[in-house]
Every structure is written in C-alpha cells, then in structure tokens.
Write a protein that binds this DNA or RNA. Structure first.
Length: 729
DNA sequence: AGCACGCCGACT
DNA sequence: GTCGGCGTGCTC
C-alpha cells in the first residue's frame, strides 16, 4: 500500500518541508497553497513536492487546498535559491513570496453596480429625475458614483432600486491599475536616447511580432544625471507591453513618489500598479491577484515587489541600481538588485540596471562582459553638466567658527544676484557634531552607543544619531558643573544656516534634513517651495542629493567634501564619490547652466580629483585596482569561512560546503556555501553576522569582538549581502 | 509564528 | 513561598 504524500513548506523559520498525507480525492499539484495542521493550529503552506510514501504511516493530513493560484516553478526556485544563498530557512524565504492574505481580507466584498431597466418609476421627484437622466444611457455605474454624478444622495438610488427602475448588477472589482498604453502620445526621444532604447529592446526575450527574440541577460544603462534614463527604460517597458510580457520596475522606496508615478502616467496615459510598504490590505491583494492573472502588465515597486507572482515576467528594471536601500538587512538578508538578476534569469527575462553612478560591482560585471553596457553620455536637451571646481581650504582665509569660504560666499552672492538658487550641501544633521565643556573638556557621549551626541539647537537637545537617544541640552557641565561653558565643535546644517543668515540677512533660506520639523508632509511642501523658486539658499543634507528636481538651482556648494573619506568602510571612497557626483549634478538642470564648488582640504585625493575632472572611469578603475591591492575583491566576496572542527560534522550534515581558515575564534564556526554570506553557529545557537568590511581579517576581528560581548549583549548579528550572486547561478 | 516548558529574579 | 520574565525547543 502506498499513499500520496505532500512535502509542504510552511512560511515560518523552518528549513525543511513537512510531510502530510494527501486525502483521497484531493487533487494537488506542486506549488499549490494548502491548509495544514501544525501543532495545535491550522496554517497554510505550499506543496514543495509530491511523492508516493510507503504505507499510510502516521502522517497528519492536508486539510484543504486554498483557492489561490499556486506558486509557479520560477518563483519556487527563487525561494529555494534565496534560502540557500542567504542561509535563511527556506520557510522564511517562502514567507516573502507568500505574504499571507492580511487579517480581515474579507472574501472580496463584491462591488455593486446599477443600471437602468427602462421601467418607469411609480412616483417621480426632482431628485429621481436627475438620477434617471444620468442613468438613461444604460451604462453600469457604481451606486455611489451614480448618486454623485446626479448630485443626489445614495438613498435616492436605493429607492429607485426598490422601485425596479434600476437593477443591481455585480461589478468587476475596482482596478488597481489602468492598462498602460505603450503608444500613448509622448515627447520624442533624443537620438542617443533612441539608440540606447533600441539596444535595450534588442535584449528582450519576448519576440517582436514576426521578429526575433533577444537573449536576455543584464544590461547596465549608465547615464549622467539629467541624461533621461527614465525615458529610455520607459521605452523598453512600452515595448515589453506591446509584446505581451509583464515588466517590473524596482526603485528604492524613497524614489517611489507620486511625482514618479505621474511621470509614468504622462508616458503611458495611466498610472502603473505601485507596490511598496504603504500599500496595504485589499489593494495589496488585488495587485497580487492582478499580477498573477497577468492582467497587470507593469508594476513599479520597492524591494518586496521582487516576490510578486508574475505570470509572464519579461523585463526587470532596477532603477538607481547602486542604492544601498536595495539591501534588506533584517529577516532574510538580500540585495534586491542581485535577487532581481536571479529572478530574471529564472524567468528568462531581460534586466536593465539603471544608474548615473553605478556601483563598483556592477561596473566590474560590465567590464568583465557579464553585463552589457549602454551609455548615455550627455544631458538631455543639450544641457551641460555643471562645471565643478575645488576650493582648496588650505588657501582660504577662514575665520574661526566659520565654514563658508570667501570663494563660495562670493559665488552665492553672484548666483542670487542673477535671481538663481544656491544649494549648500553638508551631510551632517543638527547644529554641531560634538559638544564639549570648555572648563574640563568633558565630551557628551551617548549612554548606549560609543558615539558623540549631536547638538540640535532648534530642538534644544543633544541627540545620538545612532540610536535616537535624546536629552535636554544641559545648562551646566555634567562633569564639572561649570555653567554655560559648552563649546559646539564643528558644523551641522543648522550651524551653516546660521552662518548664511548672518552673511546674507535678506535672503530666504531653507534647511532640509531628514529630521525636518513637521514630518514628511511639510518636508514635501518645502521641497515644492524650493522647486518653484521660493527660496534663495538651501542648506541640506544627503536628503537633497536626489529626488525632487530644482530647476532654479545653478550653484551647488559642497561644504566639506572630505567627510566620509576617512571612515574605515571599504566602500567609503565609492560612496563619497557617488554622493558628491549626485549632489553637484543637481546644478543647472533647468534653463541656465550650473556650477559646483567643492570645499576640500585634500584636492588631490582620488575621489575629489575624479569629481573635479569628471573622469569617473579613471576613478573606478583606480578604486577597483586599489581594492585588489588591498586584498579586497572588487565586490564583497568572502574568501574564506571560519570553522571549528568540533562543529564541522554537523555543518556538513546540513550539506554546506565548508572551508577552514587559520585561527578561528574558539567554539565558533561560520557556515555557508563557499563565498556566500555566513551564518554563525555557536553551541546550539545560530546567528547571522553583519560584516560591513569585506576582508577576511575584518570578519575575524569582528567575530572576536562580537563573541567577547556575547549574544545577550548583542542580540543577533548578520552577515553582509555584498556578494555576487552570479557565481551561484 | 505560536505555544509549552523550565529556570532564575522580585515581590503580594 | 509564588508570579512571570525570556531563553529554548517543537511543530510533519
């Protein structure tokens, strides 16, 4: 006697599928969503495999099949792949793709529509006449919509339904997205844009009608800020729509704004389905269902959109490919850009990675021929890139406690005199990054972290930017009690704003940073004000580096280009270069040409030199070479795994490939496929490690440090995700 | 995830 | 003495 057995993967932190007996008469297929008993409760899972088991045994039985479409094979393979690659339990990876119907997803409240029957009402009133006049065309309208259109309350409509003048009909569920029209009238592309779009279209794997199919793969679309990359990939999306395959456009959550959706609507005549953390409940389910049914041709979404159940995914665009926001580092750690590449490969879809400042790893992949590369070398509409010049701070006469050089001050004055805006960029929130007592030298430090407390003068507080700890700015020194003798050391944006106000008392100044008082709503209004030219000088942090377009902005002043260059992060140079290139690139995107002045104490530093000369190619080549010299791979490939012999056996039982390095911390092993992220096993505990640095030596010292503090002190730790997935495909 | 079991500190 | 904190293990 044999019996049908389903191995069901449950969306919990479980690494193996559980076996259930399939009751006779229940027709199951792999990928089906099923309800199953688990301990004392019922839950859902996905049939991962089906097999014949020996003699009934004592397996519990599958309760029922859930009336939802099953997971298609590519998505199941993605789940397996991600679990293996990130060392997350398979069930956790599945949870990302399954996102259970939220609580209270009342089985789709059927919307009711009404239509005129042609019958005459038993009584006529002015309100009824209005409704009947509107409904006379015989079209189906929503109850509410009909009342609204006729300018009467819905009770009139109800009355007419009772009177058989209107009949109720079931209405198709509300659309979450209007169908995009690939041929909606739009501004033509420039010559270089057209060429780039054609090159990308040639990679689409879905064949053109009567034409040939491309071979897919990954293409880097690189273009300076303002080159019009978005229009280019919109064109590729349009072609995918024409060919009847679905497209996914991934963006960092913050870039997924109404402004962007409007841009999409301007090109396609309809807003796309938008998927991000703010989309909840019913809408979420609709989008899932629409995507699964193939009715939604284009989704624009943040990270998690990667796990939507596309039916025929033909194109994935990853906008702002270099953005760190693509890294998920809680739960299952992954890099959405890399997982997009993996998913596309599994779905045989083409990938476009778009960026003005591509990450090193993507450049390396392009240079090695693993990715294709398409470049838009110039700004759209003949606009020039801003001229960038260094301000050598060693030669500027700087009064104490001042941060605007005479050169920059003069440039601001000229710019404003022409009626144009200036942006002063300093990537430091608050008033001063360090506060100390003049009498005793006491430095205010965070009680939780090892960081200095940052003075926020506006809030009259000392704040830790690491953990959020805040305390009132003291009147007397906490250590020696001296009154009113605190010194603010170094500048933050608030202090710069103060200096600007003193130097240019008649100018309108706006300070923009993520802790903007009044929250996101007011911040948006403020950005709008800047865009409309309602201020003369903007002082901002990294927040102003991207997003909103400021057409009146013609001068960007970088107050301290050296911030960030000295940090121990192996990506420091790359990050700083990208940030400065973005910020300076904000100048001159409107009618008038722009320029940027970069205050620095080390104008010969490769990052600064590359920024000034505009020679990004050289910088990246040097940076890649420098990493090789330092023993750092061009991207975060972990070269070795730490293993303790005592645990090796158990690890191998898990089927993990292991390698050993010298001098492992005692009692510790790290396991995972060679070169993949690491999971730390200590005793019976399993931890994941976040290792920012990408060198073996750093991982080891980090491990030791972490172990010294112990799991109690530290909670859980995770391994980085800067690993190249291509080597595992 | 939920739930049970067990071990330690701090209280009516 | 107990109550309950969470650390740990288990669910086919």
């Amino acid at each position: 006697m044999s019996v049908a057995v389903a191995d069901v993967l449950i969306p919990l932190a479980l690494d193996t599928a559980y076996s259930y007996a399939v009751p006779a008469g229940l027709d199951l297929a792999e990928g089906d969503v099923v309800q199953i008993p688990l301990g004392p409760r019922e839950t859902v899972g996905v049939v991962w495999s089906l097999r014949e088991g020996a003699s009934g045994g004592n397996l519990r039985r599958v309760t029922a099949k859930v009336a939802e479409e099953g997971l298609r094979p590519p998505l199941r393979r993605l789940v397996d792949w991600i679990a293996r690659y990130t060392l997350a339990p398979k069930g956790s990876a599945l949870a990302m793709a399954l996102r259970l119907p939220e609580e209270g997803t009342r089985s789709e409240v059927a919307r009711i529509g009404v239509r005129a029957t042609g019958a005459a009402p038993s009584r006529m009133t002015p309100a009824r006449a209005k409704v009947i006049a509107v409904a006379a065309d015989g079209a189906v309208r929503g109850k509410r919509a009909l009342g609204l259109e006729a300018g009467v309350s819905s009770s009139v409509v109800e009355g007419l339904i009772d009177d058989r003048v209107l009949e109720a009909v079931a209405l198709a569920p509300e659309r979450v997205a209007e169908p995009p029209d690939p041929d909606h009238p739009h501004a033509p592309l420039s010559g270089p844009q057209r060429e780039a779009a054609d090159a990308l279209i040639a990679t689409l794997t879905a064949p053109a009608p009567g034409g040939t199919a491309g071979e897919g793969g990954v293409t880097l679309l690189e273009g300076v800020t303002g080159a019009g990359k978005t229009e280019v990939y919109f064109e590729v999306v349009a072609e995918a729509v024409r060919r009847g395959v679905q497209s996914l456009v991934l963006m960092p959550e913050i870039a997924l704004t109404a402004q962007f959706l409007d841009r999409f609507a301007a090109r396609f005549g309809a807003r796309p389905a938008a998927w991000h953390s703010g989309i909840g409940g019913r809408r979420r389910e609709r989008i899932r269902a629409g995507v699964a049914a193939g009715e939604i041709p284009v989704v624009v979404g943040a990270r998690s959109a990667l796990f939507l159940p596309f039916r025929t995914l033909g194109l994935v665009v990853v906008d702002e490919e270099h953005e760190a926001a693509y890294k998920q580092d809680d739960g299952v750690c992954y890099h959405a850009r890399d997982m997009a590449v993996v998913r596309a490969k599994l779905e045989n879809a083409a990938v476009v990675l778009a960026s003005a400042t591509p990450s090193i790893e993507t450049r390396v992949n392009a240079a090695r021929g693993r990715y294709r590369r398409v470049v838009l070398p110039e700004r759209f509409g003949g606009r020039r890139l801003p001229e960038i010049a260094a301000v050598d701070m060693r030669r500027e006469a700087m009064p104490r406690g001042r941060y605007l050089s005479p050169t920059l001050t003069a440039a601001i004055a000229e710019t404003n005199a022409r009626g144009e805006q200036a942006l002063l960029f300093l990537n430091r929130r608050g008033y001063a990054p360090l506060t100390l007592c003049r009498a005793c030298g006491h430095r205010y430090q965070c009680p939780n972290c090892s960081t200095w407390l940052v003075e926020h003068r506006f809030r009259r507080a000392l704040v830790c930017h690491h953990c959020g700890h805040a305390e009132r700015r003291p009147e007397a020194c906490a250590a020696c009690g001296t009154l009113d003798n605190l010194a603010a050391c170094g500048p933050g944006v608030e202090r710069i704003a103060e200096e600007v106000a003193a130097t240019f008392p008649d100018r309108r100044v706006i300070v923009l940073s993520s802790d903007f008082p009044g929250g996101a709503e007011r911040l948006r209004a403020e950005l709008q004000t800047v865009a409309e030219g309602g201020c003369d000088i903007v002082v901002g942090t990294q927040l102003v580096a991207k997003g909103h377009n400021f057409p009146h902005l013609t001068l960007v002043g970088v107050l301290d280009a050296d911030i960030g260059l000295a940090s121990g992060d192996p990506r420091a140079a790359e990050r700083t270069f990208q940030l400065l290139q973005q910020v300076t690139g904000r100048a001159g995107r409107g009618e008038k040409p722009g320029r940027a002045l970069v205050q620095t104490y080390q104008p010969e530093h490769p990052v600064i030199a590359a920024l000034i000369s505009g020679d990004a190619e050289r910088f990246y080549a040097e940076e890649t070479a420098a990493r090789e010299v330092a023993g750092l791979p061009p991207f975060g490939r972990l070269a070795a795994l730490i293993v303790s012999a005592a645990e090796r056996e158990a690890a191998e039982a898990h089927g993990r490939a292991l390698a050993q390095v010298a001098d492992p911390p005692p009692g510790v092993m790290v396991l995972g496929p060679a070169e993949a992220p690491l999971a730390l096993v200590r005793g019976r505990h399993r931890f994941r490690l976040l290792v920012k640095a990408e060198r073996e030596v750093d991982i080891q010292s980090y491990l030791r440090d972490w172990l010294a503090r112990g799991p109690k002190a530290r909670g859980s730790v995770r391994v980085g995700i800067d690993v190249d997935p291509q080597s595992f495909l």
